[in-house]
Amino acid sequence: MKKQPSSETFQSLKKASEKVFDLITTHLGVQTAYVAKRDSHAMTVLSSINNKEELVPEGLEVEYSGAVCRVVISGENNTLNSSNLEKDELTRELEIANDLKMKGFLGVTLRDDKGEVFGTLCVLDQEEKNFSEEDVEFLQSIANVLSYLIELDHTQFNMALLNVPILPITEGVSVLTLQGIVDEDRAAKLTADVLNYASQNSIDYFVIEMSGLVVINNEFPYVVVEIIQALKVMGIEPIMTGITPSIAMQETGTDALQKLDVKTVSSIEQALVHIGFKLIES
């Protein structure tokens, strides 16, 4: 299970889930409860409680194709209710179910306020358990409360990064550091601020540093391509740096960037060397 954004980003969700885990495990008579976040290739456990042995540790990552949570998200009503995962035809072939000796299991899908799948809220036990419809409704009601905190965490994450960080290096050269999640609202502000700054300050080179960019749901923020196109039309040379593996794996975005024939370097220092600066070690 991956972290996009990192698990530290979802502190409100993490703290709230920890507080209700005692209530959940007591009410449903299970030994473990956890919240997991879905990414493009994996599920990550953000928080968990294990009343006996540690079955599901925080930070556990499971490839999405082999995760029980995948069955929850794709299941009828986006839930999974199983008295014994080791015998259930939907899960008995999953390695993790057998490794952890999972039997009684109940999981519901967590969504954000826009209805997009965020992850799962699940409980499990090493003994067989028969969960009722009332149990399912109870766990879903908890998930509905937690969904509001997902949006709160996203908002706080973006608010901290709302200002467009442009750093002037010298006359005609500036650095744009892209950080966090770039949603539609932030994309519009980002584009306007960058292009206005470039025109007002007679910029010749714009270094775009991307190591802090967060890719959500395997979707590269296309606004980056649009900004680069606009800068080139304005006669400004964009130079990209800080491309992380998660960014490089986005075929749609990287294909578009390659067609733009943009200079790409490994660091801001290398970008400055390309521009013509001589870096002197002190």
Rank of each mutant, 00 (worst) to 15 (best):
L124F: 02
N144T: 11
V108R: 13
S147V: 07
S65D: 14
V136Y: 06
N84K: 02
F105E: 14
V123Y: 10
L152T: 15
S83M: 14
C69E: 04
E86P: 09
V164M: 02
N78R: 13
V45G: 07
V145T: 08
R111T: 12
V68I: 15
T79L: 10
L85K: 09
D113Y: 10
M159K: 11
E53V: 11
S83W: 00
L152A: 13
L124R: 08
S82F: 07
S147G: 03
L178F: 05
G180F: 01
V173D: 07
Q140D: 01
S174N: 03
T91G: 13
L162H: 13
T79N: 14
K114A: 05
E93M: 14
E127F: 12
T177V: 14
A67F: 01
I73F: 10
G119I: 02
N163I: 00
N50R: 04
G172M: 11
E76A: 06
E53R: 13
Y64A: 04
E137R: 09
I181P: 07
N130I: 12
G104V: 11
L162F: 05
F157G: 01
D125G: 05
L121Y: 05
C69S: 08
T79C: 07
V175C: 14
V68A: 14
K114H: 10
Q179G: 08
A143T: 08
D135K: 08
L110N: 12
N98F: 04
V71I: 13
F157M: 05
R70W: 02
G119T: 04
E137V: 05
E171C: 03
A97L: 09
A67R: 07
N50Y: 12
V164Y: 00
V145L: 12
L80H: 14
V175S: 04
L46A: 01
E171G: 06
S132P: 02
E128V: 15
L139V: 07
V136I: 12
K103T: 10
V145R: 00
T177A: 11
S174T: 02
L149F: 14
T170H: 03
L176K: 05
V175E: 00
V45F: 03
G75M: 01
E128N: 15
T120G: 00
T155A: 09
V136R: 01
L94P: 09
E93G: 01
L110Q: 09
T155E: 10
L149P: 07
R186T: 09
E63G: 07
F105G: 12
D113Q: 12
D183N: 14
S48N: 04
L110F: 02
K101Y: 09
L152M: 09
L149Y: 13
N144A: 13
N84H: 09
Q126D: 06
V136G: 02
L55R: 09
E53D: 12
D88Q: 04
L85E: 11
N163W: 00
N50I: 08
V117R: 06
E54Y: 02
N144R: 08
K114G: 06
E89V: 11
L139Q: 07
E54P: 10
E133H: 01
Q140E: 02
V182T: 08
S174G: 05
T109N: 03
